[in-house]
Design a protein around this nucleic acid. Structure first.
Lengths: 377, 377
DNA sequence: CCCGCCGCTGAATCTCAAT
DNA sequence: GATTGAGATTCAGCGGCGG
């Protein structure tokens, strides 16, 4: 039986029969869940091990070493072992989830497909998959793949018949400039002051999630006073955000160091008053539009000739979204600099296309695309 | 055995042994794939049935009916049936894929988790999951979920050991404002003039994919002249884009109406010329020039002093094309690593020579040699 | 006090040809 | 197949430090 750590008297109303509310239960996820009654939590957020299967060490171009997630808890012998683990904790979660409750699971391509298939096999009903787009992901240092710039969340109800799950549609829409909240969300990764550090300045947990992500999840799919279970509590982001937003939490965690850090973190949280429990909206930057978007959209054709404003230089558009001129090739910026013999050049304003007899900078074409994308971040 | 429809004489060079190249094979995916030899295609793009499992009819707020994907080919009795189907066509694809080939599969949350898990079970190696963010997705009319604004693609190599798969990293980066291409892509859904319509103005295929999406995929992961297989050819977007971009295609499709539309569409495509199709490459593709070539050509003299960009370290050039510093000697790379106390170092960018008062990396001198060499060809 | 430069870092399945 | 060695490879953001 797992031992229970109560967080002082964070919530008076949690005393009595709901004795595990607002606590961190120390122990293995499946065993610890036995302490909870059937159908006792309103929502679940789960950030299970991703089973990354990393190879050797990875260095950046400056030869510094990437601090890999190589913790023991992320090691599985095989996909079968990972599937068995996934099935076990999802089944345990299913028992304690209320019939109209929903579950969120986050993962990467290493594990999320197995998690999603297992969810379906256990008769959970997927409501959405949601993409967390990272504003500042780690680059692909060796240039062998696309930059892995997102993680995937699955949001599912307990079973297909459940129609009365909580979804605060109007709050989501109102907080999103009065258009429906989409399934792709943009947030920075957790760093800076929010990132928990130990006395030596080292990160407390290798995969601490940003509070903004949990805030969106909790605001979207729970009501004030609801109980949110996190079976892989880690640094306690779910607990901190739940408390701030006037929800209750139950955390399960095996490692003492994580439990201690999470407990201190949550104790320091100041719950918001009822009035402030409205959703915060993220800033929207002007969408970045790269030159290949013009090519792919057909606004600029491969083979088309670009010139500068005075037709002193010209270049040919290639299908891969680069330019070629005089045996050289490169991006619109590099080649613009190259033909002029400069170190740098803004290709958007330098290169022009002919339209109805007059020259227009390709920046005008980009503006057209941006207009179509307006509001998409 | 499937029947074969040849698309006129689209490609003269495809006659003879490669008799199925640039054709649409009519038939069931798995059976038709038997017509292809082992390890005969460079890349695969697959847009399999999504197994949408839609309930009743869906109406918009104005009571108009949403034209749902309710085609017979999208109906499966169970997840088990869908898994068996997925496993069968992926195995057949695996056989015809070259060892260094890659496969793309697109799907939604209804099916992509099962597809991803099956890919892993069959020993495909996931390289990225890529998110197609839609600029103009259909709203969620009932307001019960987030707007489903994306689809997911999985990009995988044939097996984990395959390291030489095609990825045109430099072209992707150069066309993306000189930063790495991310795993989230923004494209409009296919409509307007690109959307195939029949004589009555009805869409020919319910899930026609945008050409821009296929263009990015083909430009990123194939070379000109490669063969791209699409086992669920549908309206032939893969074939049309492959032909335009100087790649070959093989399509497999069951329905005559789709085959006819695709054949007409592809026949109308104008392939781009060789110059427009040249793919941007990086240093890895350049001919090797050893440091001693610089010494032998006199660009660098024995006894000359090299330093790093900030003049923190220096070394002396020896006549044999090695460097010496502080009693140590070795290649430009080894010695660069040595003086910095690192495991590795790119000597070409680390070491500099003084020229007219300013420091230039010896990589610049190498570029000069390469330019002379290029003129000799 | 501010600005710029520099160093550090984040869930990462991350080289390749020659021998 | 394993080993060796050349040499190619990063984006956004935070914080510290110096001018």
């Amino acid at each position: 039986m797992a031992s229970v750590l109560r967080l002082g008297e964070l919530y008076q109303q949690s005393a009595g029969p709901r004795s595990l509310v607002d606590t961190i239960i120390k122990g293995d996820c499946v065993a610890a869940l036995e302490a909870l009654p059937d159908q006792s939590v309103d929502a679940i957020f789960a950030d299970p091990p991703y089973n990354l299967q990393l190879g050797g060490a990875l260095t950046r171009p400056d030869q510094s070493l990437v601090d890999a997630v190589d913790d023991e808890w992320d090691q599985f012998a095989s996909f079968e072992a990972y599937d068995a683990f996934t099935r076990a904790w999802l089944l345990a979660c299913r028992r304690v989830l209320k019939p109209n409750g929903t579950i969120w699971v986050i993962g990467s391509y290493h594990n999320i497909f197995r998690v999603g298939a297992t969810l379906q096999n256990l008769n959970f009903w997927i409501l959405n998959d949601v993409i967390w787009r990272k504003t500042n992901p780690m680059p692909n240092f060796k240039g062998r793949r696309f930059q892995n710039a997102h993680e995937t969340l699955i949001w599912a109800s307990r079973d297909p018949k459940a129609k009365s799950y909580t979804f605060n549609y109007d709050a989501m829409k109102a907080s999103n400039d009065d258009v429906q909240m989409r399934s792709d969300w943009l947030f920075p990764i957790c760093n800076g002051g929010e990132r928990l550090k130990d006395a030596d300045g080292r990160k407390v947990h290798p995969t601490q999630k940003p509070e903004a992500l949990l805030a969106r999840i909790i605001m979207a799919s729970t009501k004030p006073g609801d109980v949110v279970l996190d079976p892989f509590f880690g640094s306690g982001t779910t607990g901190a955000v739940a408390r701030r937003l006037g929800r209750h939490f139950v955390g399960i965690e095996r490692e003492d160091s994580y439990i201690a850090a999470a407990a201190a973190r949550i104790a320091a949280v100041e719950p918001l008053g009822k009035a402030e429990l409205t959703v915060m909206t993220g800033k929207k930057a002007e969408p970045r539009v790269a030159f290949n978007v013009l090519v792919e959209s057909g606004l600029v054709r491969p083979g088309q000739v670009l010139t500068d404003a005075k037709r002193r230089w010209s270049a040919i558009v290639r299908a891969d979204g680069t330019l070629a001129a005089g045996g050289e090739a490169g991006s619109i910026h590099r080649l613009g600099a190259r033909v002029q013999g400069l170190d740098a050049c803004n290709g958007w304003t330098f290169w022009h296309v002919e339209e109805q007899g007059s020259l227009r900078p390709i920046d005008d074409l980009r503006a057209r695309i941006r207009k179509e994308m307006a509001g998409l971040e």
